[in-house]
Structures are given as structure tokens and as C-alpha cells.
Write a protein that binds this DNA or RNA. Structure first.
Length: 170
DNA sequence: GGCACGATGTGA
DNA sequence: CACATCGTGCCG
């Protein structure tokens, strides 16, 4: 299993998101290093996507999404859960994939807890970081799609976009 | 400076 | 269904 290169992330989020299914999150903060198979993700695509944090424009919080793909975007929700996101696409085009679940762990909040995420992960470069990165897998994943979760306030058409990807036969 | 609220999870 | 708990955007 090898670390995913820059080129993997530097494509449109709708292309990258489903390909993240089955890939491994490698977490190297204690030994042995841990690996988690990604089972569920959601795509957030550009300023026009009202469910995407970048719909508020470029701010200190969304800044990282304006970078080229391959960086980690973390943020705190409800005052207690750190969400794990992967920046994708080209520089200047804010996109990210929210990792909603990995094998054995469901829910983005739980994942953040397991990975011990905090503010220090903001902007971590997955291609060079010594503590977290993504690795290839030899699976050929079979998945299904649904609308994204808990983004009602984004309204139509965004609440209807089938941008949540879930691995079958987990 | 103050305030309302959220890409959630838990437990009653 | 209520609520824990706090960074962020927005308004002033």
C-alpha cells in the first residue's frame, strides 16, 4: 500500500470522492500505526454549493479549501466534534470531501475522536505529513449514492445533489 | 464586543 | 426529543 500522490487529489471533487472509498487513512502517531478503511464520504463543491463552507467566501476558516488538493481541512462542530475533510481540485477552486465513516466506526464525530483531531491538523499536507496520509487499496469498491446529510439549510438544489457516497457490503 | 447557530452524537 | 459546548461569521 503506497501513499496517494498529489495528482490523486488534484481533480474535481466529484471524481475524487467516490475513489476515496476503500482507501486507507494511515495514522502514525503511535506504534503500531493505525489504518482505517474509508466507507462513507460526502463531496462539497465550490462557492456556489450552498452546503459548502466556502459558500461564505474566503475566510480564515475556509482558506485551506482554496489551495490545491491534498491538504486536510478540519473544523469543530457543535463545540465538540472535529470533522475530517480532504481538500481536492485546483488552486482557487474550493472543494473538499468530508470523511463520514471508516470501517468499524460510523459518524464523522467519532472518526475525529479516534484520530484525535484538533486544530493542529488544519492544513496538514497528506502527501508529506509524517503523521497522517492516505494509502492505496487493491479493492474495487462497489458503492451507492444518496443526498448529503444535515444540510437542509442549503436549500434546493443542493440538498438533492447525490453527493454522499457509501461503500456497499461493508 | 456580542450573539446565534452548526457537514453531531448521546442518552432519556 | 433535549442538550452538551465553542469557533465562526455576521452585525454593530
Amino acid at each position: 500500500m503506497t501513499r496517494l500522490p498529489d495528482s490523486f487529489y488534484q481533480r474535481d471533487v466529484l471524481e475524487v470522492a467516490p475513489e476515496l472509498l476503500g482507501k486507507r487513512i494511515v495514522h502514525n502517531i503511535s506504534k503500531p500505526q493505525q489504518e482505517y478503511m474509508i466507507t462513507e464520504v460526502e463531496a462539497y463543491r465550490g462557492e456556489e454549493d450552498l452546503a459548502c463552507h466556502a459558500s461564505k467566501g474566503r475566510t480564515k476558516r475556509t482558506e485551506i479549501m482554496y489551495h490545491q488538493g491534498g491538504f486536510v481541512y478540519v473544523y469543530l462542530i457543535y463545540g465538540m466534534y472535529w470533522m475530517m475533510n480532504i481538500v481536492t481540485g485546483d488552486k482557487g477552486n474550493p472543494q473538499a470531501v468530508l470523511i463520514r465513516g471508516v470501517k468499524g466506526i460510523s459518524g464523522p464525530g467519532r472518526l475525529g475522536k479516534v484520530l484525535q483531531l484538533d486544530k493542529s491538523y488544519y492544513g496538514e499536507h497528506l502527501v508529506t505529513s509524517p503523521r497522517i496520509w492516505l494509502a492505496t487499496a487493491d479493492d474495487c469498491p462497489d458503492y451507492r449514492v444518496t443526498p448529503r446529510i444535515n444540510i437542509d439549510s442549503a436549500g434546493v438544489p443542493w440538498i438533492n445533489k447525490p453527493w454522499r457516497y457509501i461503500l456497499n457490503n461493508i
